[in-house]
Structure formats: C-alpha cells, structure tokens
Amino acid sequence: MERDQMTPLAATYRAALTQSARDALTRRRRPQQLPGNAVVVHGHRISTDQVERYGQLFGAVDPQDVPSVLVHVAAFPAAMDLMSDPDFPLPLMGMVHVENRVTHHLPVPAETDLEIMATATDLVPHPSGTTVDMVVTVHRSAEDGTEPELLWEGTSTYLAKGVRLQGADRPAKPDHPEFTAPEVTAQWRLSGSTGRDYAAVSGDYNPIHLHPLTAKALGMKGMIAHGMYLAGRMLAGREPAGAGHTWSISFATPVILPGTVQVSYAHPSAQTTEVTGWNGRSGKPHFTGVLEVPAR
C-alpha cells in the first residue's frame, strides 16, 4: 500500500474502533495469517516543530541527528496503518506493547525526505494470546538516481491478549526468575500529564494514556505512561552523536500515572549500558533496556 503522506493516528484509531464494532456485531472471524502487503510512505519529513516539541520533553535535540525514539514516533503511524487494515489478523484496539529492538545506522536529519516502510512478521502463539512483530525501516529518499540509504530500522512486538490462532497450541508459560531490584542510580517522578505531554509530541492519543476514567474503561488500573516515553527517557542524553548504535527495551508492568520509577543504569562495558526501571513500593519491574554504542 503506497502512501504519499502519513495517515494520521487519529484516523487510524477511528478506523480500528469502527472495525472492532463491526466484528462484534457480525461475529466476524479475522484472517489467520498476516497480509503479504506493506505500507510504504514516500517523502515523509520530521518537522523542526516536532523536533522542538520533543526537545522540550526530553532535552536539547540536534535537528541534523534526531533521537532514535523521535524516528520511531515519525514512523509509527505507518505500522499502525497496517495493523488497522480489516485483513490484519489481530485487532488493533487492546494491543499490548511488549518489546522494541532498534538499529540506528546513520543520522536522521529533520526536514529531509524519508521513505518509511512497515511490514508484519512472526505471527506466533503466546501464553496469553498471540504476538506479532511490526518491522519498520527508514531510508533517505533516493535522489538523482541514487539508491535509498538505510538510516534506521526497528522491530516492535505486540501482544493481542486472549486472541488465539486457529489450531495453534498454547505455549507453556515460561518461568521468570524473581526480580531483585538493583542499586538505584536515578528516580523519575512522572506527573499526571505525562501521557498527554507525550501525545502532543507523538500524536498518539490512545485513551489509556490520557485520563484515569478512559484508561479504566479499557481495562487498565489507571492511566499509564507510553512505553516509548519510557524508552525516550531511558535514552535521553545517552545516544552517541553520529548514530551507529543499537538499543532495546522490554516491558513488564505498566507505569501508572502519576507515579515514581526507580531506575538503575549499569555499565558492564564501555560500549554497553543496561537500564532497569521498577516500582519502589511494590518491587515489580516496569522495563529493562540495553544501549550498545560503537567503540570510538
């Protein structure tokens, strides 16, 4: 599916809600396999205005080398566009963000034409439902006959709770070692406006992040922080200039807003930073992350 401009997230959410209502009304069974198509958006730009708003949330930003999470923000609507398609096997509404893995190959400048492509892979059973990987690549648009240049690529894993593939066996629930909190090296105090502040930058106005009542209506204990806000906070001021790095983040339990996150930054090597975030009262982990930077 070729696009000359990015589909706004608000339109994608509306389409997903409408499709969910139709599915419930008609008891429609969704397809059991992934669509073979991709969403490709040509000539998309990260605006200087978006760079400035991101900087207000996370700290100063070089518009010629924008942060990795801002690239994700710019490309995210393409993946959402694909997941909202009626032929997509999992319902977009209610998806749980499980993990992100990113390779940031080269600097991504603002106000530069980018080609963004989203595809879906690895539709697999999970103890709690079914997971899917959304793979997004960001290229610098080709000029004067040159080949598009790969700048950034990321894989986001999502879980559709309670959705089972026909004929698929439910895998056993894996054993997880008991969480032991490491040494605290930072503390994040997140206000009740954190979800709305991130939505103003990303355009992701999912109701679970905006107000306690809408979050509870959708099955949450309260409004929760965006996973990618936590990733942006984790990486702020730590990504190397000139890119060439990789990072990942895995989510365990949501951060209820307002709230406080205990954080540990550990450095097992000069190129590696390991990050853990958890709830200091309950002792439950919120996320773990790893940043790998190139040797200089």
Rank of each mutant, 00 (worst) to 15 (best):
G195V: 09
F88H: 07
D204T: 03
L123Q: 02
A60L: 08
R101G: 12
S128G: 07
T48G: 14
K221A: 12
V108S: 02
M220L: 11
T157P: 00
V71D: 02
H139Q: 03
A38R: 10
R233Y: 01
A266I: 04
H176A: 10
F88D: 05
L9D: 07
A120G: 01
L213Y: 13
G280M: 07
A160C: 10
V261D: 11
G55Y: 05
T119M: 05
Q187Y: 04
A231G: 11
H211L: 15
L92D: 02
T121N: 15
V73S: 01
E178A: 13
G289T: 01
R29Q: 13
T180D: 06
K284M: 07
V201N: 01
L159M: 10
G222R: 09
M223S: 05
H104Y: 14
T26G: 02
Y158C: 07
H105I: 04
L82N: 07
A74I: 03
H72E: 09
Q64Y: 06
T194C: 14
R53P: 03
A266L: 08
K173A: 11
V184L: 12
A231M: 07
R14K: 13
M80D: 05
S269V: 07
A120C: 10
D23G: 09
M223Q: 13
P86I: 11
A266S: 04
H139R: 09
T26V: 12
T119Q: 09
